[in-house]
Design a protein around this nucleic acid. Structure first.
Length: 803
RNA sequence: GGGCGGGUAGCUCAGUUGGUUAGAGCACAAGCUUCACACGUUUGGGGUCGCAGGUUCAAAUCCUGUCCCGCCCA
């Protein structure tokens, strides 16, 4: 088949995408005898914000799917969407300009389903256009009824095993989203604040103590005052009582070593609750509970005259009053980190309410041991997992006071208040719509109150391996766990990776996958993390696809070491384009030289042909060992070096004469044999990344003789050809070619200019080996003769024609 | 404050268990109608390997300290 002069990616890419889809090239065959390679694809959040950073990270995993498929494995590569939970609620509210609380839950859920379905269609199209080889028949979404069933089954199983409990306890609370949140959903944000120096009177009337605080509005919530017992300044204070300014209740002054003597005045007030230390003290010393904030962040009746005010206003009003009454002695402007909800950026509060928790704090060692059994690529990210587990402070709060999510399969008895768990056979249930079907097992009462909370999205997305396995379903996949690979970005180690490992451990004392590959982030050209919310247009995948081909963008995605961040740069994208073009031209050339070539013939091989075959073996070995360690960039680098520097720049020039001329049929046959193998081999080394152009070239040139329906079903190269001597002298001879090229360049001559002779001095032991390359050397350098002589080392002299 | 990663040519990055003169691409300069490719090709210029010590016959590489950048966690 004749190839056009230029490769047209715009036409070619959709063509092959359609071909793969129609032929079912990437369909998973559960009946296959091949070993299964299963990928636990990250379900992207359906919130309308896909940017090149997502593509970047997904391509890296996709390349591994293609590699393992070529390695002869049955690749299980599903796609999925995370379309329940807060982000999807937000997305729906934005898209339809509505508020969840303004309508019944069922109506809002309906709307969410509608909006997310539309978005998913667009997402699927987008991923297809990047050449993704997932099997769309395996698609699942986290709101699918059967996925909800697995999620609820997980909850029931954890409950049966005694790993969940419901407790009224101080909980991280987002006043903006009006829900409890988990430790993993928080982040620190710097805020400007004022460190107020306040003065508390001692109850016995003998003086005052200074206390510095950034949260004066919590004064009515003050339940104790602490000093460090080692602080000599305040020894006499412990055991005395202090009077809270304005609110005038008395609190005890206590000693605890957690008090930082250097910070503020060295005396700190304990409120219910300002931070985690307050909670620890409250528990440890059995202090009073004085909650002053409600769920929306407004002051309640306990705050007296501040009642009804949002905390910000209350703070201002109270500070004014403190100044007026002489309790505030000064203040200092500071910047300090505040724990905020990562979804909305609003500072979190600690409220006491009833939530469902998964017990994890007593399992830290076991979880770290599970982490040790998993192969982390690159390995240093495991440290981050270990540290997260070691520093856990809370059990996992899994209840959310939201609307769109997987409901808890629970009702509460109106008589005795006991929770009634759904029957597994009835799952999935929505307690708001369904009823338990049986009277309360505790008291026999028939009146119930449904649990209206939904589960944390991570409670479901931490089950992606079990969802892929169809855990507990009729069509459960046997022997599926642990899965082969979890690909994900490193910023969700503490959430997705952590929770998934936790669930696999709690449910089945197993690891969820054998390998984890951690991708880095895509950065925009100025080095900032890509984010569509920052209005970074260059990060828009659709715009990118207009400017670059999918293969170029895939090449860029694979241009950095696994786990490291990479700039979305014009330069690397240019490199990809050049490589695609080079590949096209080299194979176009080969095609013209391989007409009527019969790959079955085994000719006597010439030295340079043995050299290039040996070089290909070496390149393939390096590329393969890179791929085995998920270092696609190493693999690409080795393939590219071989293809461009060794094959195109040298071998093709060396073999060209023999490939064109019919004067030496056996020499031509030998060159064709090597050329066919190394080019088809190179094509396969590039296939996982440059998926479209390699397919087109394969279909045009190699399919007829190789017979695989698609290049992506062809085996990964595994050459064993090795001729050490050919390798040695082939490499050595490159110095001669280089010398001749340098001479011509210095003389401003064309590379095609003839030379009178090459005068080569060479150690005796290498003379015969190098001389065996003489014919091809004369061809490539255009030297009319080569004069050989013995010497101490290799010395090359060029004799020009006019000398 | 703790942890992890990074600092190598103007830019983006390779550099294996320490071992010739530290590499590539881009950019730059000078050439080249060469029967695949000018989206090409050849040749060349360009580096105190963040800094300071140490170990060694030998350090970009190992050790100690230190500075800067990024990320994660307090």
């Amino acid at each position: 088949m004749a190839l056009s002069k230029r490769y047209n990616a715009k036409e070619s890419e959709p063509h092959w995408q359609k071909f793969w889809d129609e032929q079912g090239i990437f369909r998973y065959n559960s009946d296959s005898d091949k070993p299964v390679y299963s990928i636990d694809t990250p379900p992207p959040t359906v919130s309308g914000k896909i940017h090149m950073g997502h593509i970047f990270s997904y391509v890296q995993a996709e390349v591994m799917a293609r590699y393992h498929r070529m390695k002869g494995m049955e690749v299980f590569y599903p796609f999925c969407f995370d379309d329940n939970g807060l982000p999807s609620e937000r997305f729906t509210e934005e898209q339809r300009n509505v508020k969840a609380q303004d309508m019944p839950r069922s109506q809002f859920v309906e709307l969410c389903l509608e909006v997310t379905k539309e978005a998913e269609g667009m997402f699927r199209d987008l991923w297809t256009r990047f050449g993704f080889s997932c099997d769309w028949d395996l698609l699942y979404t986290t709101i699918d009824p059967w996925v909800q069933r697995i999620s609820q089954r997980s909850f029931l199983d954890l409950n049966e095993k005694g790993f969940v409990y419901r407790k009224e306890a101080p909980t991280l609370w987002c006043p903006g989203c009006q829900t409890a949140v988990a430790q993993a959903e928080t982040e620190d944000k710097e805020f400007a604040a004022v460190f107020h120096d306040l003065e508390f009177r001692l109850a016995d009337g003998n003086g005052c103590i200074p206390i510095a605080t950034t949260r004066p509005e919590l004064l009515p919530a003050c339940v104790a005052v602490f000093v460090n017992p080692n602080d000599e300044r305040f020894h006499g204070l412990i055991g005395q009582k202090a009077v809270v300014p304005i609110f005038n209740h008395e609190v005890e002054i206590m000693g605890d070593s957690k008090v930082d003597m250097e910070k503020g005045s060295g005396i700190v007030m304990c409120c219910t609750f300002g931070d985690t230390t307050d909670i620890e003290w409250w528990q440890e010393y059995d202090l009073d509970l004085r909650i002053v904030l409600d769920k929306r962040g407004h002051m309640n009746a306990r705050a007296g005259f501040l009642e009804g005010m949002y905390w910000k206003k209350a703070r201002k009003v109270l500070v004014d009053k403190l100044i007026e009454e002489g309790f505030r002695k000064g203040g200092k402007d500071i910047e300090h980190a505040v724990n905020v909800h990562e979804r909305c950026g609003i500072p979190l509060e600690y409220l006491v309410n009833r939530q469902w928790f998964v017990r994890i704090l007593d399992r830290k060692d076991e979880l770290i041991r599970c982490g040790n059994r998993i192969n982390w690529y690159p390995p240093h990210f495991k440290v981050r997992f270990d540290h997260w587990v070691e520093n856990l402070k809370w059990d996992w709060c899994i209840s959310r006071q939201r609307y769109y999510g997987v409901p808890f399969p629970i009702w509460y008895c109106n008589e005795c208040g006991e929770p009634i768990f759904a029957n597994e056979k009835d799952l999935p249930v929505d307690p708001l719509e369904d009823s338990p079907g049986e009277p309360c097992p505790n008291c026999g009462c028939n009146s119930f109150r449904p649990e209206s909370d939904v589960m944390d999205t991570w409670a479901t997305s931490s089950l992606t391996p079990q969802i892929n396995e169809k855990w507990g379903e009729k069509d459960e996949r046997e022997g599926f766990m642990p899965m082969s690979l979890r690909p994900q970005a490193h910023d969700i180690i503490r959430t997705w990776a952590f929770y998934t490992i936790t669930k696999a451990y709690l449910h089945s004392d197993d690891i969820p996958w054998k390998d984890v590959m951690m991708s880095g982030h895509a950065l925009n050209p100025s080095g900032e993390k890509m984010s569509k919310s920052k209005g970074n247009v260059e990060g828009d995948p659709l715009l990118a696809l207009g400017r670059y081909s999918a293969d170029e963008l895939r090449y860029w995605s694979c241009s950095s070491k696994l786990g490291s961040d990479v700039l979305f740069s014009q330069e690397v994208l240019g490199d990809g384009r050049r490589l695609v073009t080079k590949l096209w031209n080299a194979i176009k050339f080969a095609a013209s030289r391989l007409e009527n070539y019969d790959p079955e013939i085994e000719p006597e091989l010439r030295p340079y042909d043995r050299w290039i075959l040996s070089r290909f073996t070496i390149a393939t070995e390096s590329a393969t060992s890179g791929m085995e360690k998920y270092e696609y960039s190493v693999a690409m680098d080795k393939a590219e070096y071989f293809f461009w520097k060794v094959l195109c720049d040298n071998y093709l020039e060396i073999a060209k004469k023999r490939l064109y001329s019919d004067d030496d049929p056996s020499g031509k046959q030998s060159a064709q044999y090597a050329l066919y193998r190394v080019l088809y081999g190179s094509l396969r080394l590039f296939a996982p990344v440059l998926v479209h152009v390699t397919e087109e070239l394969y279909q045009a040139i190699f399919k007829k003789s190789e017979g695989h329906e698609s290049l992506h079903l062809a085996p990964w190269p595994d050459p064993d050809y090795m001729d050490e001597e050919a390798l040695k002298y082939g490499d050595m001879s490159l110095q001669i070619i280089e010398r001749a090229r340098k001479f011509k360049s210095e003389q401003n001559l064309s590379m095609a200019a003839p030379l009178k002779a090459l005068d080569i001095e060479i150690p005796r032991e290498d003379l015969d080996g190098l001389r065996s390359l003489q014919d091809d050397l004369m061809n490539v350098t255009r030297a009319e003769s080569i004069l050989w002589s013995e010497g101490d080392k290799l010395v090359i002299k060029v004799v020009p024609v006019d000398e």
